[in-house]
Write a protein that binds this DNA or RNA. Sequence first.
DNA 1: GAAACCATGTAAGTTGTTACATGATTGG
DNA 2: CCAATCATGTAACAACTTACATGGTTTC
Lengths: 191, 191
Amino acid sequence: MDIRTLCLGLLTLRESSGYEIKKAFESELAPFYEASFGSIYPALGRLTEEGLVSRTEQAQEKRPDKKVYRITSAGRLAFLDALAEPPSRDRTRSDFLAILLFADLLPARHLAGLIDERLAAHQSAARQIKSELAATLPAGRRFVLGHALALYEAAIAYVEENRHLVESEALLAKAGPGSGSGSGSGRLTAP
Amino acid sequence: MDIRTLCLGLLTLRESSGYEIKKAFESELAPFYEASFGSIYPALGRLTEEGLVSRTEQAQEKRPDKKVYRITSAGRLAFLDALAEPPSRDRTRSDFLAILLFADLLPARHLAGLIDERLAAHQSAARQIKSELAATLPAGRRFVLGHALALYEAAIAYVEENRHLVESEALLAKAGPGSGSGSGSGRLTAP
DNA sequence: GAAACCATGTAAGTTGTTACATGATTGG
DNA sequence: CCAATCATGTAACAACTTACATGGTTTC
């Protein structure tokens, strides 16, 4: 799903300026999409040309005119079509995991620092989602926020329980065959 | 971390042809990176020019010469430098979650189909990771595989427990305020 | 007999980011 | 007083992907 389509989708929720669309990417669509102004403004321009959104300008003193975009009925239909398409599979890129794959090339204290930072970041993200979940929310939003929270919490738990795998110098070269550890909870090898 | 650097990293594990690097992306670096031939071959060419890898050609009958790449000591140093850089934050894009955010625009049976497919895909991915974890593995690889497994399992559990949020027509318009549901386990609202 | 695997590479195209250009207002 | 917020846009650049080009071999 490209930025253009996502802008259209966000405009089904409420009318917005480009600036507000950016913020919507950072709340509604975080943490599973992001977009910069450099892609949002051209996308809104194209949607306007295509008649999928309409634009009204609100003059403002001492600021550039605010341009408010509203989705048109053609836009709604187009967005429904896009939603009906089979979703392409998730794509993730994680420097953190790439680095940890090569853990044996790095000193344990460096890894410990990286892991501490990651845990702190995830804990703060989880806390923020929890506070958002306290409000009344549309079902889709609630589902998606809860999903993000569940993944953050799983990642935190996993990293806390298994960081010893990459932090013990003695174990860096190799680890014994897994004891199965069926359900992903608990340590993957003895400490 | 760009494809070029990741190729270099994979070559610290073993010497490989471009074709084998592609497969390594699909095993070692899955599911948190991917790359096509169109980026791998040029990356290997550039690394060779820069002296970070060496290339030897193995003539083969009835096939293009196989070109085997080996990392050089300059290459090892360069990769260590890259690993020491602070990791950029994870970026995920998920059409599935984007679609679910707009669940109220879609019929419940369509959503049910999407969710069934996602569960099947995640279950199969989890099964495959479990079988890989049965072998003896370097610590970094084990950590990273276990991480992927933990996230798949958390996603499966969450979706199974909360799909009712988006599948009950009656609840589509809005959901009540959360009962907190502190630790992400359990349902977010009553069924 | 079709699909997947082996094996390399290029060119064109997509999609997006970063930096540039500009500048007032508000909150800590 | 410094950072963040509000507000829009363009141009240059980066990084990939897809499709094209080629073709034997192995497995179901």
